[in-house]
Design a protein around this nucleic acid. Sequence first.
DNA 1: TTTCCATATCGTGATATTACGATAAATAAA
DNA 2: TTTATTTATCGTAATATCACGATATGGAAA
Lengths: 111, 111
Amino acid sequence: MGVTKSDLFTEAQNELALSAKALAHPARIAIIEFLLKSDTCINGDLVNELGLAQATISQHLRELKDIRIIQGTIEGTSVNYCINPRRWTEIQQKFNQIFNQYRDPTSKDCC
Amino acid sequence: MGVTKSDLFTEAQNELALSAKALAHPARIAIIEFLLKSDTCINGDLVNELGLAQATISQHLRELKDIRIIQGTIEGTSVNYCINPRRWTEIQQKFNQIFNQYRDPTSKDCC
DNA sequence: TTTCCATATCGTGATATTACGATAAATAAA
DNA sequence: TTTATTTATCGTAATATCACGATATGGAAA
């Protein structure tokens, strides 16, 4: 075992879980935040900004790229990464869907 | 290695990553959604609803309990679980903070 | 061409996660 | 007391994640 039983769950549940997994590491949060305020960046920028090895940053970038949160274009010898705006909005909406099912901020603890 | 270097990141980044990690499994998404529509439930309800073993459900419940998304009260021989409303709102706000840094829905791909 | 530079990928070790059977603990019912 | 019922925890196997050094790739500069 040790493998998630995706077939037991809905498409929406699996997709939200995968989106959450992409955000489930502080380095990837930091990369996204860096991109949100800088528009673009390259691997080397992130190696300086965060204290992780180049190979590790590259691995995190690939995870974000795999789920299409970021995209990159080759610029000479380096790669320019940026947020994929549509995908970012799409993922935000997935999260909002579950968060907005709870709407009463004044409700007390229920159990 | 194999352990996240939390000391490289801000408190907010680490907390958001931990919140995302709690949502990074479809079974836990399913449990939360079940609770959002039913208010409360017991482990046994979830064993019927999802197709996972009782021990597995219990393990997922504990992860959600550890991060305080849910709370439980003993009710005779069973345990009543429910969403922790304040914590749920708090986590929603953590996600909104990063999502709301990107506001232009009409912007085109940047790279 | 040769030498840099930036990035991706490979290989690997350490650790974490997922899943479940078996068992323990604690209350309810017979 | 004995027997169910319900949940938590333990132990464990399979797999995934995290981090990094080493290496490969591909373009730029000398």
